[in-house]
Computed example of a mutant assay.
Amino acid sequence: MLRRTFLTVLAATVALPVFADEVKTLDYTPGLIKERLAAGETLLVDYTTDWCTTCAAQKRQIGALIGENPAYGENITFIRVDFDEYRRHAVSTDRKIPRRSTLIVLKGEDELGRIVANPSKTAIQELMDTALAAATPKEPTTPTASDT
């Protein structure tokens, strides 16, 4: 019984990084965010560093959520901003990014949501749901005979 439990936990632990690697993340270069927003895309921008454990936990949660709901990966553009490199640049200062491990959702000229230093799966899912709702416009409904 213990062996079966151990193998199940091991398989789940090994699978999480695989999901995280499926996230198609673009590394930030100057102008990338403006370019993608102008194209009408919904962005989840991840201000991160390679050494940040909270950032790594957030990445694992994002990967797991995409594994559970591929619509996130299909409809949201993920952009990674290296906070060590861009901490004092407009991409961070204009949006008042306080620290690494900040996730924001952008659409058009608007910031739709933000999480700071929170690796909670629930909080990240709520943020990604906000992004998905913005990325997938609702189809207009046609009035039925009972509506008239």
Results as ranks from 00 to 15, higher is better:
G113W: 07
D84I: 05
L65A: 05
K59N: 13
T93Q: 04
G73D: 00
T53H: 14
P70H: 08
E85A: 08
A64P: 01
E111M: 15
C52N: 06
Q58R: 03
D110G: 12
E74K: 15
T48D: 07
T53I: 14
R100L: 13
Y47G: 01
D110H: 13
P70C: 05
T77E: 09
A71G: 08
I76V: 10
N75M: 03
G108S: 12
G63F: 00
D110P: 07
Q61F: 03
F78P: 02
V91L: 04
D110I: 06
T77A: 12
G73S: 03
E109F: 13
N75G: 06
T93A: 04
H89E: 15
E111C: 11
R87E: 11
D110K: 14
R87A: 09
N69M: 10
D110Q: 15
Y72E: 02
C52M: 07
L103E: 08
L112W: 10
R99H: 11
W51Y: 09
E109G: 15
I79D: 01
L65S: 00
E68Q: 15
G67L: 06
E85Q: 12
I62T: 09
I97Y: 03
E68S: 10
R100Q: 15
H89W: 11
A64G: 08
T48L: 04
R80M: 12
Y47E: 02
V91I: 13
Y72T: 03
K107Q: 15
E109P: 12
P98L: 07
C52V: 04
I104H: 03
A64I: 11
D46A: 09
S101M: 04
Y47V: 01
K96F: 13
A71N: 14
T102V: 08
R99C: 13
G113H: 08
E109Y: 14
N75D: 07
